[in-house]
Design a protein around this nucleic acid. Structure first.
Lengths: 338, 338
DNA sequence: AGTTCATGCTAAAAGCTTTTAGCAGAAAAA
DNA sequence: TTTTTCTGCTAAAAGCTTTTAGCATGAACT
């Protein structure tokens, strides 16, 4: 007779079935107060039997902690957001915390609406995510009564913020190319007004020194294509490796190189950025690239908001999580490159 | 003095500030009961002034409707899920309903955990989404005390289910090609064990009649590439159009055709399926394709679960939402094709 | 024997809202 | 004048849980 009725079982039902008071039932189930071991066991068995599960609303109302958080995102497409969100949800579900997804489409009205709904629901915290790293949050988050964690977006001074370590990621790519004996490395990346593009480019320039060249453009395949054509059309020495600011750009680069009959990786090695599998796996040859560990980013952001919501201290400022090099075949390997 | 304090304002604060009882305050704010117009106005003004917003937890506890729903998905990557989820969230936020995102990663344990959390939170309904159309839901959803809507996944008999209209979508593609004067249309698509692949293929066969050929394989670029090579290597007449089961396949097809020096769209017209912009916009030439209207699918699913949760009747069974043809340049146009 | 202590349990309050039942007063009807 | 009806308001209950304060009971002290 496991909750076959229509009504959800309450702690009142448990108490009645176990022949104790409501308080004793609660204490027994939560291990609080003073309870006889035998009674405690009986109550727990009864609760299990009738399929009792505590009402999260009532619990939240009393404890002032809803054990839910909100995720505010302005990413419509979801290439970055969803893996990240999955990471957040994955790490929090084990702590009994659920995640509200709020897609704002960069619309301030919608963002405001979502934010108010979240506050009305007494969420314990908010994770704000953006894809356009440069964009202002579409809504005022600074003076909220609950903690906010920023991912892929910079919050006000002293806020808790997570980014991938673009600087280290770029270094990873360049070091890999250098280890394989490449010396004339070119960098083709996205628009200069993206912070991530600037950081990666600077890291590349620092690592490669003189002769290094960073070409800013778009986050598109087309731009990769175009940049390669430009470079190979002009006089002077040609690069023996290209580090791309995104996998999409890398894809354009690879296509353009093939059109020019340039061998990959023999003549030119190519490294991407994103490890966006649908792209990186499908290039010919498959793309060596930098993974931003989006899921791990989600884990960390989730744990951070969890700690903050409990009042535990979390180091403020920007935390940059290491990227990972994923080796496929667009660079050759130390062994086979000769 | 708009909620500058630490504590959230309650209806008790409103009542006190307006000099009325709690019940009157509630009645005035909600327009229930009998209230003098003047009093009602005063209460509302006061509520506005002190920044009162009702506690959704308390409200939900009483009304037994939490005004929240859960979205259970096993899609890790999110290409289909996130636009759909954004549609759901977008349409529901205006009705004061929020959405819990639960990524199950196809892990039954995780799915069970999420499901229990949702029930504990008294959600008003659940939207279940899958990418692998053939897969069983990772958890038993049939005997739940709350309504369930299925999207991209088939529920038990008589459940409310939404799919894109694959049959109509395929017809859209074939008709477009025919209108442009193409007669030898080939179909290259994904694995036969995907229902969507089978439906699209059947629709194509019905529309094209004898001589039509559907090639099943993978949902990958590589397969598109390979299929084209096979077809163009064997003797006999060559197709003058290729309808692809996905944009990724189309991409492989286009690349392979270019390698063979076949002109697109002059010699062969290509149509994709998905309107996955990162792919469809970046092929050369840009890809004419079928859009599944994922956001609209989300809207409809959201409205359906809303109605169901209010006890309003919703037609059971599978509803298929029309797809849309997106014309780019991979087929030419009636005007420029000569 | 009288006091202190520990144990196992319970009644009641608190958390915030909505709804029900009903009270007083005034107006309308008898 | 008495009764009915309507109006505007309020006290209290309900929704479900956790926590606080405290009540008996029996054991261990002084």
């Amino acid at each position: 007779m496991k909750n076959t009725g229509d009504r959800r079982r309450t702690i009142y039902d448990v108490a009645k079935a176990a022949g104790v008071s409501i308080s004793t039932a609660s204490n027994a189930l939560n291990g609080t107060g003073r309870t006889n071991a035998e009674t405690r066991e009986r109550v727990r068995r009864v609760a299990e039997e009738i399929g009792f599960r505590p009402n999260a609303l009532a619990r939240g109302l009393l404890s002032k902690r809803s054990h839910a958080i909100g995720m505010l995102t302005n990413d419509t497409y979801g290439r970055l957001t969803l893996p990240m969100a999955a990471g957040v949800s994955e790490v929090l579900v084990d702590h009994g915390v659920s995640v509200f997804l709020c897609a704002t489409n960069n619309d301030p009205r919608l963002a405001q609406l979502h934010l108010e709904a979240l506050l009305d629901r007494q969420v314990d915290g908010i994770i704000f995510t953006a894809t356009r790293l440069d964009l202002e949050p579409p809504v005022q988050l600074s003076r909220l009564p609950i903690p906010v964690v920023y991912v892929f977006a910079e919050g006000p001074a002293d806020s808790v913020t997570f980014f991938p370590d673009d600087e280290q990621g770029a270094r990873l790519a360049v070091d890999h190319l250098k280890e394989l004996g490449r010396s004339r490395i070119l960098h083709i990346t996205g628009p200069r007004d993206y912070l991530a593009a600037r950081i990666r480019a600077q890291s590349y320039l620092d690592a490669c020194g003189d002769g290094a060249e960073a070409m800013f453009g778009e986050w598109s395949e087309e731009w990769g294509h175009e940049a390669v054509q430009t470079v190979f059309a002009r006089p002077g020495p040609k690069p023996d490796a290209i580090f791309c600011g995104s996998d999409e750009i890398a894809r354009g680069v690879i296509d353009a190189l093939r059109d020019l009959n340039v061998e990959i990786p023999t003549d030119v090695a190519v490294v991407g950025f994103d490890n966006w599998e649908v792209v990186a796996r499908q290039t010919r040859p498959p793309l060596t690239t930098i993974d931003m560990e989006l899921k791990e980013l989600g884990h960390r952001a989730g744990l951070a908001i969890l700690s903050l919501s409990k009042g535990e201290p979390v180091p403020a400022g920007i935390t940059r999580l290491p990227c990972r090099l994923v080796v496929r075949q667009s660079c050759g390997s130390p062994l086979q490159s000769d």
